[in-house]
Design a protein around this nucleic acid. Structure first.
Lengths: 220, 220
DNA sequence: TACAAATCGTAACATTCGTTACGGATGTGA
DNA sequence: TCACATCCGTAACGAATGTTACGATTTGTA
């Protein structure tokens, strides 16, 4: 029951407990448990249900046709597994999902979800918001990644955080480097060079833009 | 009318003309036209309607608080503008949208879309599929981009296309380089080096994997 | 205070990648 | 056959980035 709440908080995102409880009573679902090491879903399996991980931790791996596994990521409950894929044209698991600890998964069939969406606007909005937020997140990361060169990434990031000539990174240099997918010393050096060239000022997480045109020219 | 069909083919994706016509009669929508150079949506504008571009071409730009514009991309009809954003928590236009040619845009309010989804399963599935496919596409691109170094990207790509020890790129070296976000000579050199190291064989778009373990070690 | 941990700047060196240029192979139409 | 375009491999060089190591500063904590 407690875990059910977590589930609905994530997907349905109705904050009212009564509202959640109402939905909980109506929606069809199956609960499955998996032991540590057990296979939850195989790569290529058709996804006909929403897999909601409510307890435990899983790892996902890509398995080539020759059996070589490539680790992709770890997912900790509560989180939906491949939520967007149920409705995609290619509705197959892109990865192998294995339990790293004892896990609990709630399964809701696609048709149940569609019925629930038609009945409950809150569920519809919550589900849509979840996927829409994911699109936003991925789009933003991809824009950063597609900037060629560290300085271009910095310029893009700064222009997004520009508030009338000043900006704040809003995070540490180390985490920003990770966000950019570059090494911390490289990022630090690039910022220093931009400051040395008089394009920006920077100190302690805050800075000012001095030469807008030079900053713009750094972009692709 | 013809353009309306294009719209519904993209979003609703029902192939049957009768089905499309049925939906077309029911759903509320407004048609707006814009002259070349006119502003369609401002960065930061609240998105309360689906913007479906049915005619023309637009460009999107990021505008910093200091007025500097950064070109992002061009979109040609028929295509929805920021379809995923209506349902996102941050439902604002992330970019400035300007008409590059004379354009026609169909507007459908969020509430109309929700009603239509509740009524018409085909519309629901079509809309969900559109966004879900976008998540898949973005996820895949991000996985490639987040592989550090060209050889890691190649290794990842090859393992995804592994068919019992053989693989086909399925596209030209030049387009693969663009897909990876690297220069063509760099990609060509990296492949040559991997072949020279005996990790793979490669010729004319096809190849074989010789050392699986070395290939795997190239990944992050 | 004293100590440990986290964060950051910096430097030197190695590696990777972009840039540019050239030539070969292939296909196509005049 | 010739001219032309496209795709590709290769090489040489320079620029950008990764790697590693060190020290300074700050922060939290006993």
């Amino acid at each position: 029951m407690n875990q059910d709440l977590l589930f609905f908080c994530t997907i349905c995102r109705e904050k009212s407990l009564e509202e959640i409880e109402k939905i909980r009573c109506v929606i069809d679902h199956t609960v499955k448990t998996y032991k540590r090491g057990e296979l939850i879903a195989s790569q290529g399996d058709r996804i006909s249900s929403l897999y909601m991980l409510t307890k435990g931790k899983v790892k996902t791996e890509i398995i080539s046709k020759s059996g070589l596994t490539v680790s992709v990521e770890e997912i900790t409950a509560p989180y939906p597994l491949a939520a967007a894929f149920i409705f995609a044209d290619n509705n197959h698991f892109p990865v192998e999902v294995t339990a790293m600890e004892d896990c609990e998964v709630i399964l809701i069939s696609k048709s149940s979800i569609e019925k629930q969406m038609a009945k409950c606007p809150g569920f519809l909005r919550g589900f849509m918001a979840f996927i829409a937020n994911r699109v936003q997140f991925l789009s933003e990361r991809l824009k950063i990644f597609s900037q060629k060169g560290i300085k271009a990434k910095i310029a893009y990031y700064i222009l997004q955080h520009d508030k009338n000539g000043s900006f704040e990174l809003g995070r540490s240099i180390a985490s920003l480097a990770e966000y950019f997918g570059v090494e911390r010393p490289s990022l630090s050096r690039a910022i220093s060079e931009m400051a040395h060239d008089g394009i920006i000022e920077f100190e302690a997480g805050k800075g000012k833009i001095l030469k807008y045109n030079d900053l713009k020219e750094l972009l692709g």
